[in-house]
Write a protein that binds this DNA or RNA. Sequence first.
DNA 1: CAAATAGTGTCTCTGAGACACTATCCG
DNA 2: CGGATAGTGTCTCAGAGACACTATTTG
Lengths: 229, 229
Amino acid sequence: MLALVTDKIFRDSSGRRLIDYPRPSVAVDSALLIPDPDRGLLVLEVKRENTSGWGLPGTFLWEGERLADAVRRSLRVKAGVEGVEPHQLQVFDDPKRDDRGWVLSVAHWAVVAPDRLATRILDTTRLMPVEKPGRLIYDHQQIITSAVAHLKSRYRREADPDWVLGPQFTMRDLRRLHQIVAGRLFDRDVFRREMTDKGLVVRTGERIEGSRGRPAELFRRAKSPASRA
Amino acid sequence: MLALVTDKIFRDSSGRRLIDYPRPSVAVDSALLIPDPDRGLLVLEVKRENTSGWGLPGTFLWEGERLADAVRRSLRVKAGVEGVEPHQLQVFDDPKRDDRGWVLSVAHWAVVAPDRLATRILDTTRLMPVEKPGRLIYDHQQIITSAVAHLKSRYRREADPDWVLGPQFTMRDLRRLHQIVAGRLFDRDVFRREMTDKGLVVRTGERIEGSRGRPAELFRRAKSPASRA
DNA sequence: CAAATAGTGTCTCTGAGACACTATCCG
DNA sequence: CGGATAGTGTCTCAGAGACACTATTTG
């Protein structure tokens, strides 16, 4: 029966099951997006070893490691960026994709505030606008495009799910973040109603101090924005 | 330098590069959805070997094989279903997920017309409503939920991207398909305008014959529906 | 002609967008 | 008080939904 061949199972001396098939290496590649007030949406790139060009930070998956942990590790080691919450995009599975052999790559994306990159390694990393990321190896251009699409889609439904801003924020700061993500300007009052009427934010009653003009109210993220839609 | 350890590279005797790390087995699991006029949206399940329960069809990835081909192979071998176009969902990467060892599973989904299941193996497969799929192993329940969400989202934007219907179809058949996918009824005229005004279908000028009442016009899918939005 | 199904015109109402007005701070 | 920024009320217009009417076939 064919199914037996498909899922052939062996055991080692201690009785632990082993799978008797050639296995691919599994890697992760990550598009780390940074909303910059001046330059727009940026992406972190690293100098690739053994190849002259630039690419997205990536690494091979270690034994027993979670994919998200491998992404965090690669960002920490290769770019000096800590504490990121990665999202999966898709698996690139062309067997001829990597000349080092049979490598599956799981693409990821994440977004962090610009100040989180203060500790980054300047020599081997650079920040490029997502629209003009330069020449990149493999399918990394495609990963960036997909990452930006996912970021936009995510921020269309929620206020700030990836905590680019702190626990509290003004409507002005939230709008500026959304404008960078969306790549276009929003009406001040239309944006406010979107956020409040759809229950994406809740008012705290607190206000910022020391600003020019009338002090703005502070808001928090809604508990479960998905259930409201 | 840490990066050297991360991407340690070896070469074999013939100079081909090898990667010196333990590698996971990679599997695929697929939720094959079937829009049934009477029973609603169904999912194909198979009897799992070595475990008593039911689950989604799956298999291990073979050397050099594409993920989509592995999905097609598993559906062909385990369920007798041919010619399916799989879509990736996500990777399940919990190292303790499978008791056979370190196995990454890439979840997929696809949708086919009920008549494509005419050749299926009856003894080892069953069709269950997506809302009540029965007890399933692993995270297969979650895969079904995700698959249905992706299907709904996909059919909200296009007429029939996965060719459940033939090259030409009446507005009535298209609406019935959408009603099964969405799980709710649509107004006849509102649905028609959605499809025509948004350019998701184009009229052929041809009509069906031998029907009761005024014969319905036949439509085709629009060439590039995504660019219209 | 009656029944059945397909195709089209139109009314209403909601919600996004635009705009203007009011409120509150600093100097 | 004037400038600057925040917060709120209201008008308009487009699009979804509901409904009714017309069109074309079979028996």
